[in-house]
Amino acid sequence: MIRSFGWESVEFLIRGAGWTLLLSLMTFVVGGFFALIFALLRTLGPKPVRLAIAGFIQLVQATPLLIVVFLAFYGLSFMGLHFPPMVAAGVSLAVYTTAFLADIWRGCIEAIPKQQWEAADALALTRIQQLRYVILPQAFKISLGPTVGFMVQIVKNTSVVALIGFVELTRAGQLLNNMTFQPFHVFLTVAAIYFAICYPLSFLSERLKGNRHVRPAH
């Protein structure tokens, strides 16, 4: 049935955008959780663990996201269970996000001067206390800009799971295009919705990066 592109269509796309947001949020929470552990182990863990994590990060960063998504999609279903695309989408995006965020956050931890560790050590803080009270609060401040910047990448990356049939914003656009045959209107609207989500994040990211130098460094 051919429909024309109207307000109904925009509503349909906005519902798709809801899934994009939900998937992005899930990806950020799960990916961020593992990324934090990986970033800490990558800088402070025993050598074999550090090497293993570095290897994982290198391999994932050298694989296209679409291939990670396919591997999760087919890999999971070959383990004997049939997962809905939602699971494959979540797992692959989380793995991909972990690899990138872990690298970003490692950089932030390593940006803290060695003297800060030494000073904390001289104050008789334990290793955990040094991290908790001295290193991580400073690293957190540095990481804000790049982290929000990476959220933009996460939102955009979720579009790839449209290709395994998960109905988020891009897939909703494809479906709508099949119903209306008005690809120009449909994909322009889809792009506009992505822009409306991503641009504020980009703007915030730039602001957070810029302010870093304004704040007194101590």
């Binding site: 579009s159 494809q174 295009n177 690809p183 120009f184 889809v190 641009y199 980009s202």
Partner: peptide
Amino acid sequence: VELFRNTPLLVQLFLIFFGLPYI
């Protein structure tokens, strides 16, 4: 720069491949 950095490559691709023939 802002338009292309804040929308997914896949959507840009669809817009160019499916959308441009429309015009």
